[in-house]
Write a protein that binds this DNA or RNA. Structure first.
Length: 825
RNA sequence: GCGGGCGUGGCGGAAUUGGCAGACGCGCUAGACUUAGGAUCUAGUAUCUCCGAUGUGAAGGUUCAAGUCCUUUCGCCCGCACCA
């Protein structure tokens, strides 16, 4: 019988579904393992990146299950978001209907891959029984003061007609639709993630199982810096300006000051002065420059003198105040002190506007001069021009000067972060409504928990213009104030979809709980996620938000852990012809097509075999063929040997013929390799090649040993082990073959095989003989030989003898069981 | 500019703590079986001036021994980028 993958895969998928084969419940008697893949946005179609992601996750889950863990391996849908709404605008289909049909389609595609999910735990973030709890999360954060509303100048995508979080603006463009992002003043809801900045940073150290790259990206994003805030008096006014600097040691080198053009103080500084016009002119020009150019360090630095002077609090010097494009309002205090000699940006600015450059730090053994230097010096050195601190080192200066500043009440130490609060308001329909009501009497009122969920109205039109469709729904907007019962209106913004995905891994632990988002028992048992797998594109956004949620929920006593994901694997992309598969390049290979032609097992095997999971994978049609051939090869050898081993029982004797010993060696070493490769490094590609070696050994055995001489027990052991170690990779064919050889139950419920060290002990081993580090001969020696005996055996090699004849042996290095290196002169 | 990663046959990729470079697969070559082979099985396949040398982007170094460690350098990929 040939390998009929179509029939086999259909049959097996149906029976797993009927039996709910991968359903899992809390089981205190077993060690738990939570394997999680990043849930997909239901676009409607699976692509190869999904196949890779979920195949990797499935191997992990199946492997851990066979090792005796109670494995949580769930799947769900990140189902809110713009594409559904855009489809509604374009085709007139309601987003809910569109999304549900996409989910149905993708679920079928996932099922055709034979993934071992507990489908009873499926969640979709757009269902009221899920977003009810997303709203609940909002209320918890609101009660803790971690959700708040403020007017702010926000990123606005003119095409999506919504605001975006800083994290969603990529190179000044909308992460989703790629159109240029503008600015707008709006009242918006924020989550106070900055409250957790320090802990999010500190705990990165605890993430031992995360890739270094991701940790560094988060570290940079949080962007902690230590420095000082220092007050400068404005001359001719009682007011002060506060600057933030990380280099207080350079304070005597300040020769000018700069204030951001958008700074609220600018108005009173320039209003009614002769400098007003020139300043306004510049401010207007800067306003019309987009964010990318504005914040690029290639943009020419531009500034205008305000006519004002500030006073250096350390030496009383009068210094001119400028407005300039290179100072950002959002960071620090929006005002900086200009130290041209020791900051490259300030240096460029000073040269352009002929401002003095005063050196206050001299590097060891050189004499820099402010007039002749060609670039700023930002290293360490000895203080000069800084009485009374001259002569001390600049590193010592930092703490001394800050102490001095604090003692004299001129300023204070200050830690700053680049991380901003998370803007979660979206002026769109297809998201979780923010559970807030505005009452004329009571103001902002959170919707009480027993009134959740605030359900999305259905009487809406999708025009794609103006405000959110929610704002146009009469039924939705008008409500009663939960506090006073008076007339009130609902918040019409919905939440960023990243809010929904910041806690889904918690819901999987207890997906149908009607009374709570999750019970503490279930979350206590399953959390944290032991292995999280997904694309590196989520290195900052999703992973940082999820860490924030976990910490906030931990502090409120809902979650026992402080970090959600113990180990993180960022899988590489799937490439074709060296480029990422994309419609525009026309290099897309659809999973359906491959499954149809070769079956899911072949598709999975290829994708796991072609490359280690964290690296990019080059698609190869011929490589797929090769994997298909391999499965056929497995099928044929099992089928051929099956009659020999069926109904054979007993212990394998120790004294076997050499060929049987070799076969057993191949079996046990394959088990060892596959076990090590999967558990230590997730190197599925080398694990699979180890299985291929075993299959090659079986064919060798078949070639060399006649049918009558074959040992049924040894062959049985070989086949059983082959099928079990292959099971996590190719679940359908192994299930079928397991039944064929008379295995009990499902192969996926078998214990992961153990290898026998005794079988791996060889009587004779081959060692390499080198002369001056070059391989000259190989000899076979008894495994138990000690160093002296090994040396003796090596020196007896005729080849070695002739090569060292007449030369003097200077040294002999022996690596037991491996090699002998003879050093001659 | 800063940070991270990578560089090994015709190709994808293997090589614990430095210890046989090229596992496994693809491709290619030959043979067997065949009316036939784009099936299957078997054997071979780094390079060269082929009884011997040379080979892991390049150049140095450490070592009995280097793909692996150190120094310099070139190339590619990814992330961040006026954060004071």
């Amino acid at each position: 019988m040939a390998y009929n993958f179509k029939a086999i895969e259909k049959k097996r998928q149906e029976s797993w579904e009927d039996e709910k084969a991968f359903r899992v419940e809390r089981d205190e008697s077993k060690k738990k393992y939570y394997s999680l893949v990043m849930f997909p946005y239901p676009s409607g179609n699976l692509h190869m990146g999904h196949v890779r992601n979920y195949s990797i996750g499935d191997v992990v889950a199946r492997f851990k299950r066979m090792q005796g863990h109670s494995v949580l391996n769930p799947m769900g849908w990140d189902a809110f978001g713009l594409p559904a709404e855009n489809a509604a605008i374009k085709n007139g289909i309601h987003p809910d209907k569109w999304t549900c049909s996409c989910i149905d389609n993708m679920r079928n595609q996932l099922k055709s891959l034979g993934l071992s999910y507990d489908w009873d735990r499926e969640v979709a973030t757009c269902k009221p029984d899920y977003y009810k709890w997303t709203q609940w999360m909002f209320l918890q954060l609101y009660n803790q003061g971690l959700a708040y509303k403020k007017k702010s100048n926000v990123n606005w995508c003119p095409s999506c007609e919504t605001v975006l979080a800083n994290e969603q603006v990529v190179n000044g463009k909308c992460e989703r639709c790629k159109s240029e992002v503008g600015k707008k003043d709006l009242e918006q809801w924020f989550f106070r993630i900055t409250e957790y900045a320090q802990r999010l940073l500190d705990d990165i150290d605890k993430l031992k199982g995360w890739p270094e790259k991701v940790k560094i990206m988060q570290e940079n994003w949080i962007g902690r810096s230590e420095g000082a805030e220092i007050e400068f008096k404005i001359e001719g006014s009682g007011k002060c300006m506060v600057v933030y600097t990380t280099r207080p040691d350079t304070i005597f080198g300040v020769t000018y000051m700069v204030i951001a053009p958008e700074h609220p103080m600018v108005e009173e500084l320039i209003g009614g002065t002769p400098y007003e016009e020139a300043c306004r002119d510049l401010i207007n020009r800067i306003k019309h420059v987009n964010e990318i150019t504005r914040t690029s360090n290639e943009t020419e630095k531009e500034g205008v003198f305000t006519g004002r002077y500030a006073v250096n609090p350390l030496n009383g010097e009068k210094i001119p105040l400028f407005i300039a494009n290179y100072v950002l309002l959002e960071y620090g205090t929006g005002i900086v002190m200009g130290v041209p000699a020791h900051d490259q940006r300030d240096f460029e600015f000073a040269r352009k506007y002929n401002l003095p450059v005063r050196v206050v730090i001299q590097p060891e053994g050189s004499q820099m001069d402010g007039d002749s230097m060609t670039e700023a010096y930002d290293g360490e050195g000895v203080m000069v021009n800084s009485p009374p601190f001259n002569g001390i080192s600049s590193s010592e200066m930092i703490s001394k000067i800050v102490d001095y500043i604090e003692e004299n009440k001129l300023g204070k130490r200050k830690v700053n972060f680049k991380l901003r609060d998370w803007l979660i308001s979206r002026q769109r329909y297809w998201g979780a409504p923010i559970p807030i009501v505005y009452c004329q009497k009571c103001g902002i009122v959170p919707v009480p928990q027993d009134q959740l969920p605030v359900v999305l109205p259905t009487d809406v039109k999708f025009t794609g213009r103006g405000q959110s469709p929610l704002a146009a729904s009469e039924e939705f907007i008008h409500t009663e104030c939960p506090t006073c019962g008076g007339k009130a209106t609902r918040e019409t913004d919905t939440m960023d979809t990243f809010v929904c995905s910041s806690w889904y891994y918690l819901r999987y632990c207890d997906p149908t709980n009607p009374d709570e988002p999750f019970s503490s028992e279930n979350v206590g048992y399953w959390m944290p996620v032991d292995q999280y797998i997904g694309g590196v594109e989520h290195a900052i956004l999703h992973l940082l938000y999820s860490r924030f949620f976990t910490k906030a929920l931990h502090d409120m006593g809902f979650v026992p852990v402080e970090e959600p994901f113990t180990n993180l694997l960022t899988q590489g992309m799937v490439l074709k012809d060296g480029a990422k598969m994309s419609k525009s390049l026309g290099n897309v290979v659809s999973p359906e097509e491959i499954i149809d032609k070769y079956g899911a097992d072949t598709a999975r095997l290829f994708i796991l075999f072609a490359s280690p999971p964290e690296k990019d994978l080059e698609w190869s049609d011929q490589g797929v063929e090769g994997c298909y051939r391999f499965l056929n090869r497995v099928w044929r050898i099992v089928e051929e040997f099956q009659p020999l081993i069926i109904n054979v029982h007993g212990e394998i004797p120790d004294n076997l013929p050499q060929a049987d010993k070799e076969l057993r060696y191949a079996v046990h070493s394959a088990v060892k390799k596959v076990t090590d490769y999967i558990s230590e490094r997730f190197n599925f590609n080398t694990a699979i090649s180890a299985v291929m070696e075993l299959v090659n050994s079986l064919y060798y055995y078949r070639e060399k040993v006649t049918a009558e001489e074959r040992n049924p027990l040894a062959v049985k052991e070989a086949l059983e082990n082959l099928i079990t170690i292959l099971a996590p990779f190719v679940p359908h064919i192994t299930e079928e073959l397991w039944e064929l050889i008379g295995g009990k139950g499902s192969v996926h419920n078998q214990n992961w095989p153990k290898y026998d060290e005794r079988v791996l002990v060889r009587e004779e081993i081959e060692i390499v003989i080198q002369i001056n580090g070059r391989v000259k001969d190989r000899i076979s020696i008894a495994a138990g030989l000690d160093r002296e005996q090994t040396e003796k055996a090596a020196m007896e090699s005729p080849k070695v003898r002739s090569l060292i004849e007449g030369k003097s042996v200077a040294n002999i290095i022996i690596v037991p069981k491996k090699l002998v290196n003879i050093v001659v002169q």
